[in-house]
Simulated assay, not measured.
Amino acid sequence: MMASDGQGGRLVYVMGPSGAGKDSILHYAALRLAADVRFSFPRRWITRPADSGGENHISLSVAAFAARAAAGDFALAWEANGHHYGIDTGIDAALEAGRHVVVNGSRGYLPLARRRYPDLLPVAIAVSADTLDARLRARGRETVDQIAARLARATALDGAEPGICRISNDGGLAEAGEAFLALLRRLPGKTAAVSSPG
């Protein structure tokens, strides 16, 4: 179990149904905080091709993922939507050094993540059912049945865990992105920020 002593960083655990815009919001924040040494945005290890679209992840086979998991290389690991996802143990060193680590998590895995990181900050990217349905249909990656299943899962998980900060992403990316940035910038830190050049 990893717990903050008040001097370390905090794990920011971002969740939301597929199509809610998590990747876009995380990318928006990471670009704007690239020069701020208080924050770390680690890439995920995922068992899907690197060119499959969406986030900039590290691709590996199911067998390679299992081997890494068995070796204890992942601080967090879960399975969802037919793929395995992992975040490596490098986040522990970053947290201990006082950096806030922002990760793309899974709502279903939140209770286990909280067990390892009791003071994590859970953030849900929320969208209406109509917006989610429209986005999933527009990207054309899922069948009608798969979209229906994703919508049902998103509804079932809503409100399932207490203490979740919610950011609405029914509007433009800048609106949700700035709301997320404001939340991150309110986190206390012992390390000073570095201004972006220019």
Results as ranks from 00 to 15, higher is better:
S128T: 15
T155M: 08
T131G: 06
A75L: 04
A126C: 13
L136S: 15
L110G: 14
V123W: 08
E161R: 04
V103H: 10
N169K: 03
G105F: 04
G86A: 13
H100A: 08
S128M: 13
P111S: 15
A113L: 02
L110S: 12
A70D: 11
W45F: 15
R114C: 13
R150E: 03
N56K: 06
R68Q: 06
V101M: 08
A156G: 00
A75S: 10
A113C: 04
F41W: 12
A70P: 12
D145F: 09
D23T: 08
A67L: 05
I58R: 13
L26F: 00
A94M: 12
A75H: 04
R166V: 10
A35Q: 13
G105I: 11
A156C: 01
G108W: 14
D92I: 06
A94Y: 04
A67N: 01
V37A: 15
G140E: 02
S106K: 14
H84M: 08
I164R: 13
G140P: 02
P122C: 14
E79Q: 14
R114V: 11
N169T: 03
H27R: 09
D23Q: 02
A94Q: 10
K22H: 01
A69W: 01
V123P: 09
L121F: 10
A152E: 12
T47Y: 11
D130E: 14
G21Q: 01
L157F: 06
R115A: 15
A71H: 03
A129N: 07
A148G: 11
D158I: 05
R43E: 09
L31I: 08
I46G: 04
F41A: 13
